[in-house]
Computed example of a mutant assay.
Amino acid sequence: MKSSDYVQSLEKGLNILRVFDREHPRLTLSEVAELTGLTRASARRFLLTFAHLNYMDFDGKYFSLNSKILDLGYNYLSTLSLPEVAAPVMKNLSQEVNESCSISVLEGTDIQYIAREQTSRIMTITLGIGTRLPAHITSMGRILLASLPPEELSARLAKFEYGSLTEHTIHTREALEAELHKVKRQGWCLVDQELESGLRSIAAPIRGKELRVIAAMNISAHASRVTRNRLIEIHLPQLLRAAAAISDALQKQ
């Protein structure tokens, strides 16, 4: 790039935005100048401009970013598909919980995986993009089924082959309907060793426009490593935050 085409002042402004992070959520003018290497006068002009444009809050001493700064990222996210929007969130979630996580959509009587972040193999079958599993015995499937209108749900329930894959599997339509009612009421679903012995998973909905459930996201773990209580008390809040972040990004597209 030719030097005449390079806008150095824009670079300086972006550098100011970057110094605000988890360790530095609120900074004084002097601190910003020191962290960026700018003069106090130059840093002051940038900071006051950001505040005037409502990208920052200023209480007379401290500057801090506000939620309007997210608009810059959402403009980019609006060009992405669900798997692309979800990818960085899934990666962070998987690293945070040290377990695998996935996203799927409903296809007939199955769920189909459209995104996956895997830490270790915990099932006898290989899961990947495009893999299909019976919806009624998976945590993501039950989230998606519970979101359907009553008539559509009834039609799908009539098509399932009810049986026991493990001793824990819900194997009657009546029991499944009761479980789906519970899932819809609480907004999340835990499936404990129903699909495969030793496998636990917990799922939450991903919502698109008009808050319609368009996909589900889960965390899966081996029962010998993660208890039911840990899934619910520790991992569920993390999962709900991640699903909400993806939903929020999609709704702004």
Rank of each mutant, 00 (worst) to 15 (best):
I234Q: 01
S120H: 15
Y74Q: 02
T36I: 12
N15A: 13
K182T: 07
S100V: 11
G198W: 08
T28I: 13
G208N: 07
P237I: 05
S100Y: 10
N75P: 00
S164R: 02
E23D: 14
A33N: 01
T109Q: 12
T109A: 10
T131V: 13
D5N: 06
E107I: 14
L35F: 04
T79M: 01
N75M: 04
A41Q: 05
R241F: 13
N66S: 03
A204D: 06
G208L: 08
L157S: 00
L17P: 11
D21E: 12
T109K: 12
I125C: 12
L29P: 03
P205D: 10
T119V: 15
A221D: 02
E174V: 08
P150D: 06
I69F: 10
L176S: 03
A175V: 00
D71I: 00
L133R: 15
Y55H: 03
I16G: 07
L250F: 06
L236C: 13
A86D: 08
E161G: 04
R173E: 10
T227L: 04
L82M: 07
H52K: 07
M56D: 01
A158L: 07
Q253M: 10
L17K: 02
S224L: 12
R44K: 11
A41N: 03
H52L: 04
M140D: 10
H24N: 13
M1W: 07
A175D: 04
W188V: 08
R132M: 15
H136W: 09
L133C: 15
A245I: 03
E233K: 09
L17G: 12
R241V: 13
T49R: 10
P88A: 08
G37P: 12
G163D: 04
I219Y: 05
Y6L: 15
M56R: 00
A243E: 09
E167R: 12
Q238R: 15
L53I: 02
I246K: 06
A245H: 02
Q251V: 09
N98K: 11
L190W: 02
L77E: 07
G128F: 11
P134Q: 07
K159E: 14
G108F: 10
A115C: 14
K68M: 01
R22T: 03
M56A: 01
T36S: 09
C189A: 05
L77W: 01
S154H: 01
A203S: 15
P25F: 06
P150Q: 03
T166N: 08
H222T: 07
I206N: 07
L153T: 02
D57G: 14
C101Y: 13
Q253G: 15
H24A: 03
I206K: 06
V7L: 06
S139V: 13
V97N: 03
L195A: 10
C189G: 04
E23T: 08
Q112S: 11
R200Y: 03
L82G: 09
L10P: 03
H52A: 08
F50P: 01
S94G: 15
Y62L: 11
